[in-house]
Design a protein around this nucleic acid. Sequence first.
DNA 1: CTTGTTTGTGAGTGCACACTTACATACATG
DNA 2: CATGTATGTAAGTGTGCACTCACAAACAAG
Lengths: 180, 180
Amino acid sequence: MRSTAEARRVTVLNTAVSVFARAGFHATPVTAVAAAAGISEAYVFRLFSGKLGLFVAAAGACFDRIADAIEAGAERAGGDSPQEILDAMGGAYAELIADRDLLLFQVQAQAVTDIPEVAEAVRAGYRRVATFVQSRAGASDAQVQQFFAYGQLCHLIVTAGLEQVPEPWARALTAGIRHP
Amino acid sequence: MRSTAEARRVTVLNTAVSVFARAGFHATPVTAVAAAAGISEAYVFRLFSGKLGLFVAAAGACFDRIADAIEAGAERAGGDSPQEILDAMGGAYAELIADRDLLLFQVQAQAVTDIPEVAEAVRAGYRRVATFVQSRAGASDAQVQQFFAYGQLCHLIVTAGLEQVPEPWARALTAGIRHP
DNA sequence: CTTGTTTGTGAGTGCACACTTACATACATG
DNA sequence: CATGTATGTAAGTGTGCACTCACAAACAAG
């Protein structure tokens, strides 16, 4: 016994977020997650109820980390106005996704929402983040909507690699987005 | 000989967009596309260079249809101001994606941008649409950016099924989005 | 009708991968 | 030390799927 099962689950989940982020649910064999976590494939299947259970749990971990980062960002806001708090949250989010894993995992999760369990996990994640953003910033519906619209734009920018494209249209889409 | 190979390719591509849209690249067997197109799997492999070639070609067809719709929408704009033309384009896009296939295909394509050929196809698609929107509407960079940000928000709304969620946060995110 | 070309398919082949089972090893407790 | 329990794995098993190949049927042209 090197570790407790619960501690293993936590480390496996964090590596699962990173590994699933690259190639997505269907293109990522459980072996890849197991190898990255340093344990055997068989043990992953004992820790989680199948590949789907692992992915859904990883989605939970992903949104947990996002919610925590946004919450911490709000604490560092320069002022009390909704827009100032939203900007602080956006900045914290931009810093968090600099390593791209959390952002890409969200994209991968949205791509497999034809699986009901995944769709519910995605809704639960955005429910948590959206309700917190709205209540903590005291922002209007329109401000919250804009916050998430530009968040989703980041998904396009990163997946398409637009920050590497020097053409004018790409510069227009990436303008003002903090180091994505 | 029932049809020419070129005509077959066109019909296969349009069915491929619909079929890939549902479960994505890796979870969709070529058999599924072939069956939906009413031909054998073997013939699909003769018409296209492998599953990846089929998917990339389908991406081209997808963005072709989007570009055409936006172009047609611009013609029906109520006025000449950039915002009016953008609104007309947005309306045309909203109508087009009512059947969800084109929208979901974009999501699936963005999810497999770890494959370089797909990433390039996605960039080419958005390059075409973005440059047209900017030049045709005469819109500012910020207006173009906003146009695409809210377009990407539609992806989240549809994949997560937010239009079916009666809770306040979901209403905020979907407010003003035309029948997604 | 014969020969050639294009359209089309049935029947494989080989491999990757989700999931299981039987077994091993560490640690705790009496 | 004996027994029990939790952690961990090696070695399968079965299936689904990308891709191929040998072959058939339709059409064209001489």
